[in-house]
Every structure is written in C-alpha cells, then in structure tokens.
C-alpha cells in the first residue's frame, strides 16, 4: 500500500528504536563476557551528550566534510520512509527497493569521500577497505532482493511484503531461505560487525567503519552515529519484510496492527540476539580473507535466484 501517513509513523518508530537495538546488542555482548555492561539506554545518553557539544572541523577539509553528516542522515530518513515495519505500507510513490539500496550507497559514498577529505591516513585506509567490502556485497544485496521480487512480481517493498503475507505459506520456498542467509551476511558486512569489523575497537590501524568517523565531533558525530544505528535497524527491517514478513498487518485495524507491532519487535530482538551471539563467538577475520566470505554471500544470493527458476 502506498500510505504516506503510515510511512511517517513507521519511520519515526525505526528512528526511535535504533539506539535501543544498539544498546541491546552491547548489553548482550557484555553479559556473554561475564560483565555488567552499559545500560540498555546508554546510546540515547551518548547521542544527547554529543548533540550538546560543538564541532571541530579540520582546516584541510572542504564543504564535503560539512555536508556529509546531513546527507547520510537524510538518506537514512528517506530510506526509513520506504520500508514497511508492522504494516505492509510505505511511501511507495517515492521509490522502491532499488532506491533504498542506492540511498545506502549514496550515504556510503559521501562517508568515504569525507574520510579522504580531511587528509588523514586513517580516513584513507578506512575508505579503501570499506569500498573493497561494499564492491562485493552490493551485488549480493541486489541479487537477494531480486529473488524476492521474482517471487512476488514487484520491487516495491510494501508490495513484496503484501504479496508474501497474503500468499501465506504457499509462497515459502528455498529461494527465501537462501536469500535471507545471503542478506544476513550482508547485514554483518554493511554494518561493521564481527567478523568484518570490530565496532568496539580502539586500534586505529584495524578500523574500517570507525576510521571514517575519526574526524567528526559534536553534532556531526551524533548524526553519523545515529545514521549508523538507523542503518542497522533498516537492514533488519528489510530482511524480515522482504523474506519473512508473516505477522505484518495488511489493513489498519487495532488487532492486526497490534499483532504486527509485536511480531516486528520479536523479530527485531531475535535478529539482534543473533548478531550479538555471532560477534561473541568468533574473532575478526584477516582482511584478505574477507572477500571469500563476501563472495560466499554472493553465491548464496545467486543460488536463490537460480532456485526460483529451477525449483
């Protein structure tokens, strides 16, 4: 369905929940390490603290560094409008799934460019590593989404979830599972999680995503952090609504919406727990072995598309 009002409500929900999801992942990781860990609401306090502080920009930087936080955040907000959360509705007339993928790409492009802008070596290293990862993972994401689009006949995310929910279990085929697996690996790669990158590291030589954020401070850093957290929740929302949207409401009535909301929160929590468990059980992979894992994700997505035609 194309419903701007519902889209705005869903976008606000995503933006509001984003720091909470990050907080939950950190808390679960800490408890698995036998530590108390920070409070679940800590990311909210961090963002609040950062918004109060002033920004320092390097004297070598140009206008790119100044606009990048706003571009990234704006891209995430627009993408949030296009993703259905608990109702199979979004602001579909703005764009479909391809637009969402390229909104992420725009944000990534500006982030990498701004990292090079400040003229520091770590920014450059982070950008080159990020580009290496995303050059392999983007085709995997697109293929995974195509497989969902092939099954349902539309690339509009609200439309995909609508068809899958209405079609029910008849439409469940191996394609969805393979594509979901590929998308899961892509989520870990795009959001700088172990085994690709360590979000909690302080070693600047090993950073990929964090290295690109080293130059920001104050409000700009708050916007970049918020954009990263939102990206994670968006990936989770897309993963569930494109492949297993069962439980989402197809009409605006009290009971279906309540079920849709609860289903979404449960799925969000499950995905976050899975990320925390995987992060705690393995170490970061050596940089030059990452393309192997990324290509694995691409193969899974490719198999998903193939299995649609063969099976």
């Amino acid at each position: 369905m194309n419903d701007p009002l519902l889209a705005i409500i869903q976008a606000a929900l995503i933006l509001g929940l984003a720091p909470l999801v990050t907080g939950i992942i950190r808390k679960v990781k800490a408890v698995l390490q036998s530590r108390q860990g920070p409070p679940i609401l800590q990311p909210y306090y961090d963002l609040q603290k950062l918004f109060r502080k002033s920004s320092v920009v390097s004297s070598d930087a140009s206008w790119v560094s100044i606009i990048t936080p706003y571009v990234c955040m704006a891209a995430m907000v627009v993408a949030a409008l296009l993703v259905p959360v608990f109702v199979t509705a979004s602001f579909g007339s703005l764009g479909d799934l391809i637009v969402v993928v390229y909104l992420f790409a725009t944000a990534r492009f500006f982030m990498a460019l701004a990292a090079l802008d400040a003229g520091s070596t770590f920014g450059g290293m982070g950008s080159s590593r990020e580009m290496m990862i995303s050059s392999i993972i983007e085709p995997a994401i697109l293929l995974a989404i195509f497989s969902a689009a092939l099954i349902t006949g539309t690339t509009d995310l609200a439309g995909i979830s609508q068809v899958l929910v209405v079609g029910g279990y008849d439409l469940v085929r191996p394609t969805l599972f393979l594509a979901f697996a590929a998308f899961f690996i892509a989520t870990l790669a795009e959001n700088a999680r172990i085994p690709f990158d360590n979000p909690a590291t302080h070693l600047e030589l090993t950073m990929i995503h964090e290295a690109m954020l080293l130059e920001y401070s104050g409000k700009k850093l708050a916007l970049m952090e918020m954009a990263s957290m939102t990206k994670l929740v968006l990936f989770i929302a897309i993963a569930w609504s494109a492949f297993f949207p069962f439980g989402m409401a197809t009409e605006v009535a009290i009971l279906p919406v309540a079920i849709g909301l609860i289903a979404f929160l449960v799925k969000l929590l499950l995905f976050a727990l899975a990320i925390a468990l995987i992060e705690s059980s393995m170490s970061k992979m050596r940089l030059f072995r990452l393309p192997n894992l990324l290509t694995g994700s691409f193969i899974l997505a490719f198999l998903a598309v193939m299995s649609f035609y063969i099976l």
């Binding site: 698995l32 390490q33 530590r35 468990l277 059980s281």
Partner: peptide, 12 residues
C-alpha cells in the same frame, strides 16, 4: 556460552 556466563555469571 555454557562454560562462560552460564557457569560464572556476571563477575563485575
């Protein structure tokens, strides 16, 4: 996990 937090609990 079994040998970690399930056995030791939270130690801090």
């Amino acid at each position: 996990i079994r040998k970690g937090v399930l056995k030791k609990g939270v130690v801090t």
